[in-house]
């Protein structure tokens, strides 16, 4: 690797870490504000303009808080647990492309890379849940593992429909293929399945069983405090960002906009809109039961996703120019 490539990679790493920090801080603020208004409350209000400084204050508090390790916790696993979720979550973001040629790694299998790292998350959750030696964390972790593994399959099958249609796993190719018609119009069924499955992958309401505040305190992260809790939060918002990016890139045209020149701005707007949608769902829907969560994935989404992929493949063969 030449020096210029090293500098390019280093700048992108710093940029991505900054992006994650900004997404987490602004995401938490916007979530609290938006859900507050959905429930006719006001949300954060007193620190800075409409409570904008609340989150930096929370961050300082989080960093300066005592790091409590439960007596019966497994000391090593308890320490590396947060890293096992935050590292894959951030690593998955390395493949995100924000404009043609504008990204850290424009891999020809970028989509595969992102999904591969997201698949590591249940392992991190399981380690966190096991290491704390608490029933809340263990139940939360087992729920997270079961849910993430169940919903990965319909999600991958729905994404496969897009890959079949675009003929590539490179995110730039997939988005450029939507310069005319977005895949949401070509594969509405795939979009619905992908949207639901991504929501479950991100542990968002109505699929927030791993956290389930009313039953499990805070689920797998119950025993964490201080910056370790901050790391888990960071991972959660990184996954939320990546999930919203995937929905925008695979189905909503990415940086393309009808009648307007392509720009990273459209992509960012779509990501923010997708994140806001998940918050809107959180402010509206009740949580699913564990058994209905499983039956939705295995009995409904998986068969529909299989039908969808076959239909897309058949259409791609029958109408090669259009599909």
């Amino acid at each position: 690797m030449s020096a210029a490539m090293w500098i390019h990679a280093l700048l992108w790493l710093v940029g991505l870490l900054l992006l994650i920090a900004v997404v987490t801080v602004m995401g938490v603020w916007w979530e609290r504000k938006f859900i507050g208004h959905l429930q006719r409350r006001r949300g954060p209000l007193h620190h800075g303009f409409h409570g904008l400084l609340q989150l930096p204050a929370d961050m300082v508090k989080m960093i300066s808080k005592e790091d409590i390790v439960p007596d019966s916790a497994d000391p090593w696993l308890f320490q590396i647990g947060p890293l096992m979720v935050v590292v894959p979550a951030i690593a998955a973001m390395a493949a995100l492309m924000f404009a043609p040629g504008f990204g850290l790694l424009d891999m020809n299998h970028g989509l595969f890379y992102i999904f591969a790292f997201q698949t590591l998350l249940p392992l991190g959750f399981a380690v966190i849940g096991w290491s704390c030696a608490s029933k809340f964390t263990l139940i939360g972790a087992l729920r997270a593992a079961a849910q993430l593994i169940s919903y990965e399959i319909p999600m991958l099958l729905a994404a496969l429909g897009v890959v079949v249609a675009a003929g590539s796993m490179r995110l730039t190719d997939i988005i450029n293929a939507q310069a005319g018609v977005w895949y949401i119009f070509k594969e509405p069924l795939g979009f619905a399945i992908f949207g639901i499955a991504v929501l479950a992958e991100m542990n968002r309401t109505p699929f927030d069983l791993p956290e389930a505040e009313s039953e499990l305190v805070a689920g797998y992260q119950t025993e964490y405090s201080g910056m370790k809790f901050g790391f888990v939060q960071l991972a959660e918002y990184s996954v939320l960002f990546t999930g919203s990016y995937l929905v925008s890139a695979l189905f909503l045209g990415g940086w393309n906009m009808p009648f307007l020149p392509a720009s990273p701005l459209w992509l960012l707007l779509k990501i923010v809109a997708c994140m806001t949608m998940t918050m809107w769902f959180r402010g509206t829907f009740p949580r699913l039961r564990v058994d209905s969560l499983m039956s939705l994935s295995w009995k409904w989404l998986l068969p529909i996703a299989l039908v969808n992929i076959m239909a897309v493949a058949a259409l791609a063969l029958a109408l090669p120019g259009i599909y």
Binding site: F34, G36, H37, L38, Q39, R40, R41, R42, L45, W280, F281, G283, T284, F285
Partner: peptide, 17 residues
């Protein structure tokens, strides 16, 4: 349900400061 919460979001908050 989404419509109801959206209507709430566009309306005035009911909480008192």
């Amino acid at each position: 349900g989404l419509g109801i919460t959206l209507r709430h979001a566009l309306g005035r908050p009911v909480t008192e400061l």
